[in-house]
Each structure stands twice: as structure tokens, then as C-alpha cells.
Design a protein around this nucleic acid. Structure first.
Lengths: 199, 199
DNA sequence: TCCGAATTCGAACGATCGTTCGAACCCAAT
DNA sequence: ATTGGGTTCGAACGATCGTTCGAATTCGGA
């Protein structure tokens, strides 16, 4: 990897940490200069502007989590729909916990991009949501599409909200949290199915 | 109600809508003036500044949802822990759906306040979280406090995330969504308990 | 050692922000 | 008609923002 790319990567990671802590809009380019040790003008050698910086962070993180999820599903080799669903959840939570800053920026600043950049990130998000909805379709084929879509977002809510409260270094390690969420959703998912259609 | 208070209330509601749409930080006082029909300087007769405007919105919404939850629990008269938990969930989701703008501002701009104002809103939030944790304690007395706290935040994630995707005027009406979330969590909650402690 | 490209940076620009201030306006009571 | 407090507003201020530009610096290959 070229020195330029390494420095860019470091820059993106450091910026993600600042964005996660202060929020995108209240972070100034001067804050980023102070946090990275670069000069104010120097950052513009690596990035066209503040919004492209946010875009690069979001695009990189989303591509990673999407590729990671597909890898986790392929590696598992599972054929049981519920086990595949569980694998997806475990990967998402584990990745989230391991990359809190980037994932917080991805979740919390989802509407901070504009125009073409907004559209590009939304396209990746769509693929990721589709991936989960496909898993839910295999797990509950008789479910109406509307409820399945709602269930997908309910699950994403459980998982993405953790940037608001979870401390990866606290008492609950990421694997335990992933298990808690997976059991809560899958258990409730099965329960809801039998309740909705049976009574 | 005095005309002044009515105009203030209208102002807070309109401002909440703009904050919910554009985000707090990228909303300018000039945007608010245009949306409310007031002049730029005129708004300062009702509010000390932009941050106090956000504070008034958050404080008002949080007080409402907290009081509403306590009322819903008292009115229900339920003694069964699971039914009380369900009543809490139904109220929270229904209130959220009925006041999307304010609740989005409350959820998404939770860290946009500073100093004393931040502390005051956090204090109300603490009371609200404690209320839910108390319900969870009644529903699962043997659960360790750490897991119960995590479960509370997982539930809040399911419920508060809806500002990212839910359309109250869409195919799923609020009651149906509340039912979906309540069944998902309570079903999974029971499932998780038996799984964790049983094997 | 020297050269040219890659990289860094101090200093400044124009734009936009939140806020302020004093005057103007409205309206019920005198 | 006049007063006076409640309410609105045009205009401007100082601060801070993202960005730019040309010069300075660094550094590997000849």
C-alpha cells in the first residue's frame, strides 16, 4: 500500500472518531486539523472538502460491513434460514462493536450527505437491507412483504441503536450482546409469527 | 391560555418540524423565520436563542411522553408484569407515531444540547429509562441488572429507530406497529430468559 | 548533488451564521 | 386623542465557517 493511501486511511479513521464524538455538523475543519496533526490546508490534499470526507467514511464502512456480511453467510455454509439470520445478526453487531466510531457516523449521519453522494450511499444501504429482507423471507415465507420490511427495520433499530449506549469495554462483551439481540429478535420473530397467524 | 403561550406553542411545534426535516445544526434561524412567518429578530422575543429553542422542544416532548407513560400504566390497572410492559411499549410507539417530528428531534438530537440544558434533559431521560427498567425487573426478577439494562436499550432501539423509516400514513398503522414491536420484544424476552438460564 | 514531482502549510477571502439593538407597530385602557 | 406596555422587525455586528492559493518544504531517482 502506497504511503499516500496509508495516510488517507489514517486520516479517515481519525476523522470518523471526531465525527462520532462531536457530530458531523459541529465538527470544524479546524477541529480535524487539530485532531490529526495536519494543517488546515493540508487536509484538502487528501479530500476535496468536508462533505466528501464524510462520504468517504460512510462509503468505506458500508462497503466493509456489506462485504463482511456476505462473507459471514458464505463461510457459515448454513442452509437453515434461522441460522443464516443469526449469522447475519452476529456479524452486524460484532462489526458495529469493533468499529463503533465509523458505524455511529454511518447510522447517525445518514442524512448529512446531499445530492449524488447521498444517492450512492443510499444505494449501498438498499443492497444491505435487501440482503436482510431476503433472509427474513427464507425464515418466514408466508409473511406479508410489508410486515417483513417492518421487521427488518425493527431489527436494524435494535442493532444500530447501540451507538447510543453500548460500551464495548464494559461488562457486556460484543459476543454476548450479539447473542442477546439475536435471541430477542429470533425468539420474538417466531413468537410473532405464530401469534399473528394463529390468533 | 394566553395568546403569548399559544403563539409560543405553535412556534415550538413548527420549529420541531423543521428540525426534524433538516436537522438541528443545519437549520438556520433564518430557515425558522421563513417557516414560521416570523421575522428573524421576532423569534428572540419568544426564545433566548437557538439552543434554548431545542431545549424547550425536547423538554416539552419528554415531559409529555413520561407523563403519558405513567398515565397509561395507572389507567390500565394491570398487575401482570408482562401486560404492564406491553402497555408501556404500546404507549411509547403510539406517542412516537403521533408526534414524529418532536420525537425525532428528541431521539436524533440527544447530544446537541450542552451544559445545564443537556443535564436537565438527561435527568428526565434517566427517569424514563428507570421506569422501563422497573417494568423489566418485575417481568424477569432473576435477570442480572446488566442484562436487564441492555434489554431496555435494545427495546428503546426498536422503538426509537422508527423515525428513520416509519411512515404513520403508510400501510402499517401505529397500533399494528406497536403490536409488532411488543410481540417481538416480549416473545424474544421470554425466549431469551429460558435459553440463557436453561442452557 | 541536483531536479521535479509530491506533499505541506500560513494567510487570507467571501459567505453565512447567531445574535443584538433601537425604532416602529399594535391595541386596549384612559 | 393619547398613553404605555406588549410585540414585531429591518439592519447591522462580530465571529466563525469551509475553502483557496501560491509559496515553502520534503524526498526519491538520476
Amino acid at each position: 500500500m502506497r504511503p499516500y493511501d496509508e495516510r488517507l486511511d489514517r486520516f479517515l479513521s481519525q476523522a470518523a472518531t471526531v465525527f462520532a464524538t462531536q457530530g458531523y455538523h459541529s465538527t470544524t475543519m479546524r477541529d480535524l486539523a487539530a485532531a490529526t496533526g495536519m494543517s488546515l490546508a493540508g487536509m484538502y490534499y487528501y479530500v476535496r472538502g468536508k462533505e466528501e470526507l464524510l462520504y468517504r467514511i460512510q462509503e468505506r464502512s458500508f462497503a466493509q460491513v456489506l462485504a463482511g456480511a456476505e462473507r459471514a453467510l458464505a463461510r457459515g455454509g448454513d442452509t437453515d434460514p434461522l441460522e443464516r439470520l443469526q449469522a447475519f445478526i452476529r456479524h452486524h453487531v460484532a462489526f458495529f462493536a469493533a468499529h463503533m466510531a465509523e458505524m455511529k457516523v454511518l447510522s447517525h449521519e445518514a442524512n448529512s450527505l446531499t445530492g449524488e453522494r447521498q444517492r450512492k450511499v443510499s444505494a449501498i444501504k438498499r443492497r444491505y437491507v435487501d440482503l436482510l429482507e431476503g433472509l427474513l423471507k427464507d425464515a418466514a415465507p408466508d409473511e406479508p412483504a410489508v410486515e417483513r420490511s417492518a421487521a427488518a427495520y425493527v431489527l436494524f433499530g435494535m442493532m444500530n441503536w447501540i451507538y447510543n449506549w453500548y460500551d464495548p469495554a464494559g461488562e457486556i462483551d460484543p459476543e454476548r450482546l450479539a447473542g442477546l439481540i439475536a435471541r430477542t429478535f429470533i425468539g420474538g420473530f417466531a413468537e410473532a409469527r405464530s401469534t399473528v397467524h394463529g390468533g
